[in-house]
Design a binder for these strands. Structure first.
Length: 376
DNA sequence: AACGCGGGGTT
DNA sequence: AACCCAGCGTT
């Protein structure tokens, strides 16, 4: 049995010895094969890469063969893998390696880093796996694993966070098995410490994991709060009839359920606002309205998306509410609007419209669009 | 520091 | 429909 005092790098390696998948580039890890595999593995899943790797190294078995090939032939082998600049850089680097390094890959992290297509991740992977250099790889998996293990509260997307993790990890990279250590971290991230629903019960580092101990696994890794919220256009109508206006009730069990809103809905892709508002009102109330001028524009951000609400003044040529909509649509005197529960965006649109109607001859202005708000 | 690059799987 | 993936080069 492993003692609890066994350091985590050893536990990780023992786990790797028992659980490593056998992958083609692990069977015969020559520098060339490691290089090809790592180029293909950038932002690409292992299972996707395997067949491409086999075909590629069969077609171009050496750096010289790769350098001698036409770029078109290389791209053909890459077809379907995506990120085609990887193939172009690979081909270019092959030429440089032949011309300047005697057709052998550079053996150090620093030298590898100079080749086109090889960044910090790839340089560390090749240097450690093919040449045993003690440099840690910091990829998406490793960031996630250690963000949890050490409860790192920095945004994992930031360059600073990655550099800091590189420095912090380097002392742990074992002199004997640097490459296995790195592959073990990635393998753990890919198969156990997954983005969602991590398999903590099967994790060899569970007893060392700060986030697990704190029961805060789901809070890590900390992501940028600047993720762009999806944005929608919502078009609504101020439909007037004999001095009263039309409001509708949101379905219970939905967002804003039970609240009353100006009738309308989300604009379809490429649709005009005026078209959208008429369509949505017809769908929700059965009334055919004629959209007039825009009387209010409201920006609003919910927890998981943001909207631009555009309110059109509408006239109602047909009149009567069909029976099926009687319960969820109402004609209301403007002064009675306050008594109905309404979401903020609706409330703002209405008050904007009322202001413009009170003879305070303020021109309607469109607020500045906010494309990316921050999540709170 | 932010963005474009690609195709595919997961939730 | 987002998010994520064994990231890198450009701006």
């Amino acid at each position: 049995m492993p003692s609890r005092a066994e350091p985590w790098p050893r536990r990780l390696l023992r786990w790797y010895d028992r659980n490593a998948r056998h992958l083609p580039w692990r069977e015969n890890p020559t520098p060339y094969r490691v290089w090809i595999s790592e180029m293909m593995l950038q932002q690409t899943k292992v299972e996707t890469v395997v067949p491409y790797f086999r075909r590629f190294v069969r077609t171009f078995p050496s750096v010289r063969m790769l350098a001698a090939a036409n770029l078109a032939a290389v791209l053909k082998q890459w077809e379907g893998l995506g990120y085609y600049s990887r193939a172009r850089n690979l081909h270019m680097a092959a030429g440089i390696i032949c011309k300047e390094h005697g057709a052998r890959l550079p053996r150090t992290y620093d030298e590898l880093l100079k080749l086109p297509g090889i960044g910090p991740y790839c340089a560390a992977a090749i240097a450690s796996i093919a040449f045993g250099e003690r440099v840690p790889v910091v990829d998406g998996n490793v960031l996630r694993v250690f963000s949890r293990l050490w409860m790192i509260n920095e945004d994992v997307k930031k360059t600073r966070t990655r550099q800091a993790l590189f420095s912090r990890l380097q002392p742990y990279v074992p002199g004997r098995r640097a490459g296995d250590f790195n592959q073990a971290m990635m393998e753990l991230g890919a198969r156990v410490c997954t983005p969602r629903n991590p398999q903590c019960g099967r994790c060899p580092l569970r007893t060392t994991c700060a986030a697990h101990a704190a029961n805060r696994i789901a809070a890590y890794p900390v992501r940028s709060p600047t993720t762009r919220l999806p944005h929608r256009h919502v078009d609504v109508g101020v439909v007037r009839r004999n001095g009263r206006i039309l409001i509708t009730q949101r379905p219970v069990n939905r967002m804003l359920g039970g609240l009353w809103v100006l009738p309308g809905g989300p604009r379809a892709n490429g649709e005009r606002g005026s078209t959208s508002v008429a369509r949505c009102i017809r769908e929700k109330t059965g009334l055919d309205v004629r959209p007039g001028p825009i009387v209010a524009t409201v920006q609003h951000t919910y927890s998981h998306f943001s909207i631009t609400m555009t309110a059109f003044e509408c006239t109602d040529p047909t009149g009567c509410l069909p029976r099926k909509h009687k319960n969820s649509a109402k004609w209301v005197w403007p002064r009675a609007l306050d008594s109905y529960p309404m979401p903020t965006a609706t409330r703002r649109a209405i008050s904007r419209w009322l202001e413009d109607n009170d003879g305070t001859t303020r021109k309607h202005t469109v607020p500045k669009s906010s494309a990316n708000r921050r999540k709170s």
